[in-house]
Design a protein around this nucleic acid. Sequence first.
DNA 1: CTGAAAGCGCTAACAT
DNA 2: ATGTTAGCGCTTTCAG
Lengths: 349, 349
Amino acid sequence: MAKKQHKIKLDDIARKLNVSKVTVSKALRGHPDISAATIELVKKTSQKMGYVPNLTARNLSSNKTNTIGVVVPKVAHFFFGSIVESLYDEAFKNDYELILTVSQENAERERKHIETLLSMNVDGLIIAISNETKNYDIFKTVERHDVPVIFIDRIPDLPNINKIVVSDKEGTFDAIEHAINLGYTKIAYFSSYTNINIGRERLAGYKKAMKKEKLSLNPEWILQGGFREEFGYESFMKLYDKKILPELIFTETYPVALGVYEAARKLKMNIPRDIDVICFGNADVQKYLNPPLSCVNQPTEIIAKKAIEMILEEIDSKDKLLRREVVISTELLLRGTCVNKNKGKRNDN
Amino acid sequence: MAKKQHKIKLDDIARKLNVSKVTVSKALRGHPDISAATIELVKKTSQKMGYVPNLTARNLSSNKTNTIGVVVPKVAHFFFGSIVESLYDEAFKNDYELILTVSQENAERERKHIETLLSMNVDGLIIAISNETKNYDIFKTVERHDVPVIFIDRIPDLPNINKIVVSDKEGTFDAIEHAINLGYTKIAYFSSYTNINIGRERLAGYKKAMKKEKLSLNPEWILQGGFREEFGYESFMKLYDKKILPELIFTETYPVALGVYEAARKLKMNIPRDIDVICFGNADVQKYLNPPLSCVNQPTEIIAKKAIEMILEEIDSKDKLLRREVVISTELLLRGTCVNKNKGKRNDN
DNA sequence: CTGAAAGCGCTAACAT
DNA sequence: ATGTTAGCGCTTTCAG
């Protein structure tokens, strides 16, 4: 293998060029102090010598890392996967590196990750909290460290923070109202958890629409219990067993709707004829379902773009900016469900 | 806002405890030099004072970062999303931080990311190259920096490297052989690109199975052109227009199969009755398709686990280890397609 | 078991 | 326009 090669540093280039290493350092960074000719020369030489700057050293002395720490609950997941991908795109455009961490919906792990990120001296933080995070002490620590934070999607219930959310309440409201306009009156709601902002907001949107349209709330049609498929499957089965199936089911996440599809298939019920479905949250799966599942779409790219934009503003401004809350509008994405009122149950699939 | 707080450092703790900062440093890291009592005391005090170690400084002086750089082409993608998630899990278990970068299938971006990762002094690198990477100079640079690398899934055509691949050839071979055993003889193959290892290997598996079963290769049934849905859709349409549709289509990636589903739906052809499909690569979508799509499954968790295991071995060993090639076995995952031979085209959906 | 000195590679502040 | 001096916060010798 290649003989032990000494890694090139500023000094090496400086010596070769008979200048000081400060000159080299400045030239490499295009500092206005240095003449164009020198810059040119230094850059060329360092390139030729195979110089790779040592960011660790640079960070230590400049106290700036050009990195943004990111904490998400999941990454193999349509919503967060898209968010993360767009965050990477935007960071790249702005010459920032992202340090991504994944909490796996685990509060303790989340805390550890945030601590590590602080240790790494990230310039800013973008966080979507886990659904079990209840203790907010770590965010105090973050504040003490003077590292700006933008919360996205999953927001802690804390005053005076920067946040980007989608119009959870309005989006749900619109979907339910759309359904009611179609002629539906029996609408069930499969909720995640109300200790998390998205759970609270979306449910509020449902209730608001029902109330506005003067439909009574049937507590048996408001089920709570999770983000995942099993919850959808089991809840559907529960209603079926009790013989109190509604006409339409709204689910707070798309995996829950997938569970409903599964249950319907098992029971040989046809969607949307026997039971109709619509959900919050988009995923590529939906368009391949039979029938394609309609949803309230969250524009991930816009969320990510805004998050990077805001965190960079925070980083660049010396003074504390005003805390901001940005609400990104969702849109109703109609595919093959919730487009016509079903004609009541006909079990002849 | 909290009054400008000075960040606690080793010195502060040392002064408070009337010891030297070296003692504190060692105690915090549980160095055997220090007595248990001192360790206990130091840890407690530093905790109380809200000390957060400065990793930048630690890295600079120890020349060790406890980070692994990762480069993948995509992250909002079932395969890489799962890989990344598992990599995070494994890294976390081993107290390593991951620095993830996403090339977006762009060779130039990939090069830049690797350079940055080197600048950040990552202890090791796990890389899946983009499908357009042809210039391998950057990997020479990596070698010069003495940073160990494990290539996964997408492997450059370079001698003497560590790699983890799945049994692309055998997996495809098994699937095709299974189809032939079902009675299929007209089997088309939708390939990605043969400049990438996975493209070459999988195609070789197809050819091998066809040859073994003494079936002739029809060049019109071997189409090349991409990883994505459009390719599947268009290729299917092309065969349909030419009236040379086969009985079964094997696609090298699952999005291509999705494109086939779409085309079949458009043409009102029934899968698997009129045309059957199977693909390489699993995704959660597949089980919700109608019919559920069978595939050759790549065990992402095992790949990720092995990758972390190998890179840690490389990092921990002073001497260069022998280059290793690990092949992870795929498995045939049969769902609703390619389970019975279809009865020929009946266009009466 | 503890600590003093030196230095990791770079940049900021201040000369010149 | 270029260089000198200090020092970022920590760990690593090596000496006590």
